[in-house]
Nucleic acid binder design. Structure first.
Length: 419
DNA sequence: TCTGGGGTCCTAGGACCC
DNA sequence: TCTGGGGTCCTAGGACCC
């Protein structure tokens, strides 16, 4: 390929990331069994009602086991299925190794999720280098040096690169250039990025079955049907995407934590305790990153899977455990019908890095005292661990004083849904 | 022992202002 | 006291991603 004026974007996706990484780690630890070669999944703990498939091996895929489905169903499909718990520290380690290797080529890397990156390789291509050969080299190096495989999508924008990756898996380089749109137009419309389970039936209803059908449809009709989201996916179906490779992560818009409790909770004291533990976790995350929030929202899912949420904008910006908890308590009270609760979540948003205290004359709270208290507790927790200091109400309970996070420490990279 | 947890963005409707 | 209309802010809920 000759000198190009347009840029080349790679989308790199670790194949069955959690499962592969766990398999590689176990081999390194001396295990003789390669989880990738048998029907296996990484999954949560069903006793804690977190028993879903997080990642599956290719042999497990042959049994039609799907990511997100319950382990109960997965075991019905394959009774010999091997289930291993997630180790998020391990996943983070391999994700970092991937990015470290890519730094040999360019630093224009966007970490889209723990197992996906976008790379702008335009500058990494010398004038006689074919992007496909470069992708193959990267793939081979990852396999040889890190022990797992990736698929790489090659195109000129992020959307097409991402769509390319899924064309063949695992361990392939796929291109999807503007003159190759047929490759994705053949696919059912739900394979299009951002065309999910609610949008697909709406499109099917007006006769749109494939990505090509959408691409060739009347944009104004799609826009009328799906508003701005319609315009977005119509553009995507036509390969149109002008988003940049974002090399630095923008400041978080919100921070939240939630938990599915191992049993349904009907008792207010117990629910309040869980809420407090969640508030402890979220507010410490805010403080650790020197952030303050101005909006607090509480979300519950009842045991019938009906969800409710309530939010309130505060007059102040805060990261104080006590202030956030007192708001969260009021919000929980406002939505709780008494139906037993399965899941509770708290979320803080409207985040800034400096706080302006706008005192309300009816507000008698001693902000300095709250701050000193949080700081003292944080110092203890940073030194001796999160569970070493605890509010009195947790002492003889079954709950840890901080709840949240998917890993042990909860320090785990997450992702966006937009390019 | 069927259905996790962490994010972002969008929309609709009501309150309130001029 | 027969009713407009544009703008902003706030809240609840929904949709999508991995």
């Amino acid at each position: 390929m000759s000198v190009n004026l347009k840029g080349y974007i790679f989308h790199i996706d670790a194949n069955s990331a959690y499962l592969s990484w766990e398999a590689v780690e176990r081999l390194k630890e001396g295990s003789k069994l390669d989880l990738r070669k048998i029907p296996s999944v990484v999954g949560g703990d069903p006793k804690k009602r977190k028993g879903i498939v997080l990642a599956k091996s290719y042999p497990a895929k042959k049994y039609k086991i799907q990511t997100g489905e319950s382990l109960y169903i997965a075991l019905q499909k394959c009774p010999d299925l091997v289930i291993v718990p997630p180790r998020y520290e391990v996943f983070t380690k391999y994700s970092n190794q991937l990015v470290y290797l890519l730094n040999d080529y360019t630093n224009l890397i966007e970490r889209y999720s723990i197992d996906e990156v976008f790379v702008d390789v335009t500058g990494a291509l010398t004038k006689h280098t074919d992007p496909i050969l470069l992708a193959d080299e990267i793939r081979n190096r990852i396999e040889d040096e890190l022990g797992f495989t990736v698929s790489i999508g090659v195109s000129t924008n992020k959307l097409l690169a991402k769509m390319a990756t899924d064309l063949r898996k695992p361990n392939f380089t796929n291109t999807l250039f503007k003159d190759e749109l047929d490759k994705m137009w053949k696919l059912p419309v739900n394979k299009l990025f951002m065309c999910g389970s609610r949008t697909t039936p709406k499109l099917n209803k007006i006769g749109i079955e494939t990505i090509g059908d959408l691409a060739h449809s009347d944009k104004s009709i799609i826009k009328k049907l799906l508003k701005s989201h319609g315009e977005l996916i119509w553009n995507y179906a036509n390969g149109i995407d002008y988003s940049d490779v974002h090399t630095s992560r923008p400041m978080a818009k919100g921070m939240g934590n939630s938990t599915t409790i191992s049993h349904d909770v009907g008792d207010r004291i117990e629910a309040n305790m869980i809420l407090l533990a969640l508030c402890e976790f979220v507010s410490k995350r805010l403080r650790d990153s020197n952030c303050y929030c101005q909006l607090v929202s509480v979300h519950v899912k009842y045991n019938d899977f009906i969800s409710k949420s309530a939010q309130r904008k505060l007059y102040i910006q805060t990261n104080s455990t006590n202030i956030i908890y007192s708001e969260a308590l009021k919000l929980l009270d406002s939505i709780w019908t008494g139906t037993p609760i399965r899941q509770i979540g708290i979320r803080t948003s409207e985040i800034t890095t400096d706080s302006r205290y706008q005192y309300n004359m009816f507000d008698t709270r001693d902000y300095k005292k709250e701050k000193d208290l949080d700081n003292a507790i944080d110092r203890m927790r940073n030194k001796y661990g999160n569970n070493t200091i605890s509010r009195a109400c947790f002492v003889n309970s079954n709950y840890k004083p901080m709840i949240g996070g998917v890993g042990e420490d909860g320090d785990f990279m997450m992702m966006n849904s937009h390019l």
